[in-house]
């Protein structure tokens, strides 16, 4: 039977969202009167959506402007994380010596919060004066986001079937050819899983990083509204951050599947 209505992927998720709205509405009407209702939130924040590219002042801009600033920052940090993470992951997967040297260190650094990395970044980049905080933000994003890429790449390298390496051996491929023609394509699916997770973390970290830098972006906007005691924009920001994160994940998911080599 042909489905007349996209029940599974449209109607039911909408039911879920409607439930959340209802709880939100209920709470704001009863025990948390300071939190605006969904409608009041929309009334207060629609200016950011209806004029998405407006720039009234540094910290009073349209939603797409803020999102763009944040995305550019995330892109830079993510790019650096990939650039450092992939070779590190290859070394970790290929060399037992490297693994023994650095595995413990990585396990210790991995759970450190972005809020802890940021001050270190600020100290590291003091020579850049007014740009110091921006670099500190990038540093924080990179350091926090690279681990999934490092670990997934390493797992992928270790999972390369011996068969493929035997082909490389009997065909006398050079070390570089083996890396480029055999290992890299074999590890690619694992790497993309790492990239997807890394991008997710980078987007998670951006809010914290921007709160601390104050440079324009979705995180600093949220922080400013928080300091000013405006609750509607905070809820609005949470929704925007969530939606953008979701879209990024979907995009990476498509790219990941595109690169499925096995």
């Amino acid at each position: 039977m042909k489905k007349l209505f996209p029940f599974d992927w449209l109607v039911l998720p909408m039911v879920g969202i409607a439930c959340a709205m209802l709880v939100w509405y209920g709470l704001s009407k009863t025990i948390t009167p300071k939190v605006p209702t969904p409608l009041a939130t929309w009334e207060e924040c629609k200016v950011y959506v209806l004029e998405p590219f407006a720039k009234r002042s540094e910290l009073d801009q349209g939603v797409l402007n803020f999102t763009r600033y944040s995305l550019v920052r995330v892109a830079k940090g993510f790019f650096l994380a990939v650039l450092i993470g992939v070779p590190t992951g290859f070394l970790l997967g290929m060399s037992p010596w490297f693994f023994k040297c650095f595995d413990l260190l990585f396990q210790i650094l991995r759970p450190v919060s972005p809020l802890a990395w940021f001050p270190l970044g600020a100290a590291l980049f003091t020579t850049f004066k007014q740009d110091a905080l921006e670099y500190a933000a990038l540093f924080t994003i990179t350091v926090c986001a690279m681990w999934p890429t490092v670990l997934n790449t390493a797992v992928g390298v270790r999972a390369i079937p011996q068969d493929y390496l035997n082909v490389a051996k009997v065909l006398k491929l050079s070390a570089f050819q083996t890396l480029w023609k055999v290992m890299l394509p074999a590890v690619l699916p694992y790497m993309f899983t790492g990239f997807r997770l890394s991008l997710g973390i980078a987007w998670l970290v951006i809010v914290a990083a921007e709160m601390l830098t104050g440079n324009p972006g979705i995180g600093s906007f949220l922080n400013q509204e928080y300091l000013a005691g405006h609750y509607a924009p905070i809820i609005f920001c949470i929704i925007i951050i969530g939606v953008v994160g979701f879209i990024l994940d979907r995009i990476m998911n498509v790219v990941e599947r595109r690169f499925k080599t096995i």
Binding site: N166, K181, V182, T261, I262
Partner: peptide, 12 residues
């Protein structure tokens, strides 16, 4: 030249 039991082709 070697022919392996599992053909050992590179799947990509």
């Amino acid at each position: 030249g070697i022919v392996f039991q599992s053909p050992c082709l590179l799947p990509w």
